[in-house]
Amino acid sequence: MKYASELRERAVRRLLKLRAAGEGQGAPARVADRLGMHREALRTWVRQAEVDGGKRPGTTTSDAARIAEQFGVEPICAVLPPDRRPEVQEGTRRIP
């Protein structure tokens, strides 16, 4: 399922703000449910934001992009035949 980048960023900011205010207990579920997204997706985005912000060890988004470029890795949509590519437009998400 693909979520709009604005929604993803807003959810991550909201959850990090709640955690900073000491309201982290159950906050991921509340934020995800209110915004209509999968809880695991939100958890993954927050973890990546923490890596990118230097608060958690791991590969940053910019490093991953640089490595992919260096080795010529293409997004999955670029290597799938046109009839098998997902039809997801920016700003939309799939409903199961």
Results as ranks from 00 to 15, higher is better:
Glu9Arg: 03
Glu50Met: 05
Lys55Trp: 03
Leu18Ile: 08
Gly53Glu: 08
Leu42Thr: 12
Glu90Val: 12
Lys2Met: 09
Gly58Phe: 01
Glu23Cys: 02
Ala41Glu: 13
Ala27Gln: 09
Glu74Lys: 13
Gln70Val: 13
Gly91Lys: 12
Ala68Asp: 10
Arg34Val: 11
Trp45Ser: 04
Glu9Phe: 03
Ile67Gly: 10
Gly54Val: 01
Ala64Ile: 03
Ala20Cys: 05
Glu40Gln: 15
Glu69Gln: 15
Ile95Lys: 14
Asp83Asn: 07
Thr61Ala: 07
Val73Tyr: 10
Arg10Cys: 03
Pro75Met: 09
Ser62Val: 06
Arg94Trp: 13
Phe71Trp: 15
Ala65Lys: 11
Gln89Asp: 14
Ala65Gln: 11
Val51Ser: 02
Val12His: 01
Asp33Ala: 14
Gln48Tyr: 03
Trp45Val: 05
Trp45Ala: 04
Leu15Tyr: 00
Pro82Cys: 00
Arg84Phe: 00
Asp83Lys: 10
Asp33Cys: 12
Arg13Glu: 07
Asp52Ile: 10
Gln70Ile: 12
Thr61Glu: 04
Arg93Asp: 12
Glu90Met: 12
Leu80Trp: 00
Lys2Ala: 15
Ile76Pro: 07
Ala27Lys: 03
Asp52Glu: 07
Ala65Trp: 06
Gly53Met: 03
Ser5Asn: 00
Asp52Thr: 08
Pro75Asn: 15
Pro57Lys: 04
Gly24Phe: 01
Ser62Arg: 05
Met1Trp: 14
Val88Trp: 14
Glu50Thr: 04
Phe71His: 14
Gly58Arg: 01
Asp63Tyr: 13
Gly58Lys: 04
Thr61Trp: 04
His38Phe: 13
Ala64Val: 06
Leu15Cys: 03
Gln25Pro: 02
Pro86Arg: 08
His38Gly: 14
Gly91Leu: 04
Asp52Arg: 10
Ala29Cys: 11
Ala20Glu: 09
Glu9Lys: 03
Arg30Trp: 10
Glu9Tyr: 00
Ala64Trp: 09
Gly72Glu: 11
Arg30Gly: 08
Gln89Tyr: 12
Arg30Asp: 09
Tyr3Ala: 02
Arg39His: 12
Ala78Asp: 06
Ile95His: 15
Lys17Ile: 03
Thr44Val: 08
Ala11Gly: 06
Ala68Phe: 07
Glu74Tyr: 02
Phe71Val: 15
Ala4Gln: 05
Leu42His: 11
Gly36Lys: 13
Gly24Met: 02
Val79Asn: 03
Glu74Thr: 01
Glu87Ser: 14
Pro82His: 01
Val79Cys: 03
Pro86Ser: 08
Thr44Leu: 10
Ile76Gly: 04
Arg10Ala: 05
Val31His: 06
Gly26Tyr: 15
Gly36Trp: 06
Ile76Tyr: 07
Glu6Pro: 04
Leu18Trp: 04
Ala78Lys: 06
Pro28Phe: 11
Gln70Trp: 15
Leu18Phe: 05
Arg13Gly: 01
Met37Glu: 15
Ala21Lys: 12
Arg56Phe: 01
Arg84Val: 00
Gln48Leu: 09
Leu42Gln: 09
Pro57Met: 01
Gly91Phe: 08
Ala27Asp: 06
Gly36Met: 08
Ala20Lys: 09
Arg14Met: 02
Phe71Gln: 09
